[in-house]
Design a protein around this nucleic acid. Structure first.
Length: 951
RNA sequence: GCAGGGGUGGCCGAGUGGCUAAGGCGGCAGACUCAAGAUCUGCUGGGCGCAGGCCCGUCAAGGGUUCAAAUCCCUUCCCCUGCACCA
């Protein structure tokens, strides 16, 4: 507890110094640049650990690259576009308790602030103010001079969006269209998934309406299978339902009363002209518009007046519901007779087959119902039966002779043609319906509305997609596994509405009642960071930034002299802005959560390729998993919402950052747990304590030993691992190397021998720098204790030095470790308390045998033996050689480095002595003077010294 | 349902064909301490062994390929993300 307070104090102190000394402000210079971005957060609440996870990844990368000597820009901005902030203000005005409670209890907004939350701008300003403090304390290396907000609250940004949309439109990427949406009649706005009480994931389904002439009107059947009209035998109406006569675009339609309000949102000039009951329609006839046949209207309980038009055409050959309902009715004709249906006519109805499907006979619906034993129209399994028949017929079915011009076509291909033809002939129309009930958050049941004259981004455009694919192919995607998701998204992406009517935002320049929608105004704003700095510094009037000015800055079009005055600046400033834009662009890394791949991150690429030349296309996108808290999804509702503020209060920046970065990498979802945060806190404290101890240390060893070469070699391994991992944003692996593995080696080093000052200090200086991107403030503290120059944040990243790797030293140290374990294992098995330990290293000739084995590709005893016997010294002891060779051939082949065993183990003797509290002697097996009462030394093998222990 | 990513020891997680699993946490034992904490040391799937060793088991489940599989293929189950006008 004490130590965590100390870490927090260090974190705060250094965050202060960084901003006081403007360490992270970045301007163009001679160096190579790296431009990293985090998707600006939406400011309707405080930053939470999910934000911190992603943003810390960006910061770690920024810090890493900065230390590598790049000129790094990490800017920040705030997203205000859209409905939620405005909606929240509205709810506060209405005194909505649930909303107030969230602000108060989850976000921790003080009462005196809450009063002012009726103003959306105030809410945004409040959260921005808080979030900025939090990011500062978290130690993010942000250049705050470039900060901005979106929407018309920031005129300069609006000018930028206007430029963007005018350009997109001019280049043919924007079009006007009409589209069905899930709509709340009460809110008078589209109802997205998150705005729903129920019906998540439900989207409009397109029904084809087939108009069956009926007296002066049309009976309008809704179907998903319009091709089956060739097999129609009768119509179904629900006798309990009420139907309406509706005027639609000059015609009179008969549909269920429930369908009328739906049609009003989807069709022109819809007016109700009176009602009639289902019962009174039954028994009468309408006309099949294709064949002109008379079609009898029959009663059916399965017909749902709430679904589409409440009128169903009956195709018993291919629709299980229709078949079962017809069979039931024919078995009890008296039911139908009550509605005035003539018995003979009813009994005379026979299924008409129109699709031929491999694996089925003439009437698939009948077959399937009989197979499944379905007897009544209320049987729930009818859904499954319908699904099966539909799917098989759709993919495998072929239309029969009785389908006129469509005969012989596959259902899959005929369907669209037929609908187009029927529509042209005035027989068919469309209606959208929700297959499940959708209820808006306001409690109103939603329906489908056709939104007219909406503005769309033409993401379906093949030429556009081709450029996006090209950009993607040249981009680094981290982790690489995420690439497939991007490719997929590009594949299925269709036109996307890009403007809305409600909420905050920038009006579309050519149609100002629409505002540019949030996912659309967040696509190329990274370019704006280069401009925001100049606007914020008052060097140019942001409100007056015209399209022509942006064209100059971004494209170099026009003359700065002519443009300068109109926007309150000089040609020099405009030229500088253009240079700055060219310097920082393109974006070198954008990082976000994987949930944004199908929208924002892909749109980000779309807009870049639409607006900029390939040199300015983004270079890399990184994605990460979604944070969970103690194993559960984080949500305000669940009450496990953790703000960054709270994490900082409890653990401070260094611990929070490291705990997050160690929680996961790649696409894996990180989990935050209080326990693991505490573990991280002890790891960092322990690191810090070690640095302090060594800085204060007085006792050092003078001469250099194998253990020092070993440590230097290990240090290089960690440098290499941390560097390579960070290049790919693998923060967990990097931290594993830079904190834990490094720490373990330091522990071993200090345990093994009195440390060598230079080696030790060298290791510490590397260590502190490797850890600096993760725990920057703590490392600044250590850096200054170690006498490092300036800030560690701008110190040089340790470069991997291959020449410092020493496989020999590592092999030597492994020999020490192995020998240590062997002694230990003997002690534990024999349960003896040793007083004297003798170690015998392998004789020279055994090494020679081993080396011969390694030289030979074939591990063939006689061949190798023959070669060995050519050496006289070995020949003398042929019997022994044979035994040793056999043993070596039994072992797994592996590369072995020659180690000066006697020297290495002698150096380690003192360590063994301390560890085992016993006298330790190291001999060569060839040493004539050795003490070896049981002749153990005979068993010494290379890298496996013989051991003899006395009680 | 469709698409993408996953499922490894009590827990977090390395590991993508070859000495059957890195590191951390937790647990147990010991050292230090009046004690607790911190720290250090050893053990931590099961079994056997008074000389460094051996045997068995294990990577969601089942099947297959291979001399050899956590790793490759097939099937099933489970989890995460997305499926659009939400940010």
């Amino acid at each position: 507890m004490q130590s965590i307070e100390r870490l927090k104090e260090i974190d705060r102190r250094w965050a202060e110094r960084w901003s006081r000394e403007r360490v992270f402000e970045a301007d163009p210079d001679q160096r190579k640049k790296v431009f990293v971005t985090f998707p600006f957060p939406y400011m309707n609440g405080p930053l939470h650990l999910g934000h911190a996870f992603t943003s810390t990844r960006v910061d770690v990368y920024a810090r890493f690259k900065r230390m590598q000597g790049y000129n790094v820009l990490f800017p920040w901005a705030w997203h205000l576009t859209g409905e939620p902030i405005a909606g929240a203000a509205e709810r506060v005005k209405r005194g909505d308790e649930a909303q107030l409670r969230i602000f108060r209890e989850v976000d921790g907004v003080p009462e005196e602030e809450l009063e002012k939350f009726t103003d959306p701008e105030y809410i945004a300003r409040y959260y921005i103010r808080e979030a900025k403090k939090v990011l500062h304390e978290l130690g993010h290396s942000i250049d705050w001079r470039r900060e901005f907000t979106t929407t018309s609250l920031n005129p300069a940004f609006s000018r930028f969006i206007e430029w963007q949309y005018l350009t997109l439109k001019e280049r043919g990427y924007v079009s006007k269209g009409t589209h069905p949406v899930v709509w709340c009649p009460h809110d008078a706005s589209p109802t997205g998934d998150h705005d729903r009480l129920s019906g998540e994931g439900v989207s409009p389904t397109k029904f084809v309406l087939l108009k069956f002439p009926f007296e002066d009107a049309y009976l309008v059947a809704a179907t998903l299978r319009p091709e089956t009209i060739y097999g129609v035998t009768n119509m179904w109406l629900n006798p309990e339902a009420t139907y309406a006569r509706v005027r639609v675009d000059g015609e009179v339609w008969i549909v269920s009363t429930q369908a009328v309000p739906k049609l009003k949102e989807q069709k022109e000039g819809v007016e109700s002209e009176g009602e009639l009951s289902g019962a009174e329609l039954i028994g009468r006839h309408c006309t099949d518009p294709v064949s002109g046949r008379k079609v009898l209207i029959l009663p059916a309980s399965f017909v749902d007046p709430d679904s589409a038009t409440g009128v169903v055409m009956s195709v018993p050959s291919h629709a299980p519901y229709d078949y079962v309902a017809l069979k039931e009715l024919q078995q009890k004709p008296e039911v139908a007779e009550r509605y005035g249906v003539r018995r003979e006519e009813l009994l005379g109805i026979e299924p008409i087959s129109l699709i031929e499907t491999p694996g089925y006979g003439e009437h698939p619906a009948i077959e399937v119902c009989e197979q499944m034993g379905i007897e009544t129209q209320d049987d729930p399994r009818l859904e499954e039966a319908t699904e099966r028949v539909y799917r098989d017929e759709f993919y495998k079915g072929v239309l029969r002779e009785n389908t006129g011009r469509y005969a012989g076509m596959r259902v899959e291909e005929a369907k669209d043609r037929l609908v187009a033809d029927f529509t042209e002939q005035g027989i068919a129309d469309v209606m959208y319906e929700l297959m499940e009930e959708v209820v808006c958050r306001c409690g109103t049941r939603c329906l489908v509305k056709i939104l007219k004259d909406q503005w769309f981004l033409k993401y379906s455009d093949e030429g556009w997609k081709a450029k996006v694919r090209e950009a993607l192919a040249n981009m680094r995607i981290l982790p690489e596994e995420a690439r497939a998701s991007f490719e997929n998204t590009i594949e299925w992406l269709e036109d996307k509405a890009c403007a809305r009517k409600g909420g905050l935002g920038t009006p579309l320049p050519w149609d100002p009642e629409w505002k540019v929608e949030t996912l659309s105004d967040s696509t190329v704003y990274m370019a704006f960071y280069t401009i925001a700095k100049h606007v914020n510094q008052g060097r140019v009037n942001g409100e007056k930034l015209s399209r022509e000015v942006f064209d100059y800055i971004f494209y170099g079009k026009g003359s700065p002299e002519e443009l300068a005055e109109a926007c309150g600046t000089s040609a020099e400033v405009l030229e500088e802005m253009r240079r700055e834009f060219l310097y920082w662009m393109p974006v070198d890394l954008r990082n976000s959560a994987k949930e944004l791949i199908p929208n924002h991150l892909t749109f980000f690429v779309f807009h870049h390729v639409a607006l900029f030349e390939p040199e300015l296309w983004p270079r890399a996108i990184a994605v990460n998993g979604m944070i969970s808290i103690e194993g559960h999804k984080m949500s305000k509702k669940a009450g496990n919402f953790i703000t960054v503020r709270r994490a900082l209060e409890e653990y401070g920046a260094s611990v929070t950052r490291c705990a997050l970065m160690y929680a996961s990498e790649g696409m894996r979802d990180p989990d935050w747990s209080a326990k693991r945060a505490m573990d991280m806190s002890s790891s960092l404290s322990s690191f810090f304590r070690l640095v302090e101890e060594l800085v204060d240390r007085k006792e050092w060893r003078e001469e250099e030993r194998n253990i020092d070469r070993w440590l230097r070699s290990r240090v290089q391994r960690h440098v290499r691992e941390a560097t390579m991992s960070l290049e790919e944003m693998r923060t967990r692996s990097a931290l594993q190397a830079a904190l834990f593995d490094f720490h373990n080696d330091m522990r071993w080093y200090l345990r093994r021998d009195v440390p060598h000052r230079e080696t030790c200090m060298h290791a510490l200086r590397v260590w502190v720098r490797l850890l600096a991107p993760f725990a920057p403030a703590l490392c600044e503290e250590c850096w200054s204790m170690l006498g490092g120059e300036g800030f560690v944040s701008t110190a040089a990243w340790p470069e991997f030095r291959e020449e410092e790797l020493s496989p020999e030293a590592e092999a030597g140290e492994e020999l020490v470790m192995q020998t240590y374990e062997d002694v230990q294992s003997i002690i534990s098995v024999t349960r003896m308390k040793p007083s004297r330990i003798f170690i015998y290293t392998a004789p020279e000739w055994k090494w020679r045998v081993l080396e011969e084995v390694q030289r030979q590709e074939r591990r063939e005893f006689s061949e190798i033996m023959q070669r060995l016997m050519q050496q006289p010294e070995l020949r003398e002891r042929g019997g022994e050689v044979a035994k040793v060779l056999q043993e070596m051939l039994k072992a797994e082949p592996k590369d072995v480095l020659r180690v000066r065993e006697l020297e290495v183990l002698s150096e380690a003797a003192e360590f063994f002595r301390r560890a085992f509290e016993a006298e330790v002697s190291v001999y060569s097996a060839e040493d004539a003077e050795r003490y070896d009462p049981q002749n153990r030394s005979a068993r010494a093998m290379p890298l496996k010294p013989a051991i003899y222990i006395e009680k």
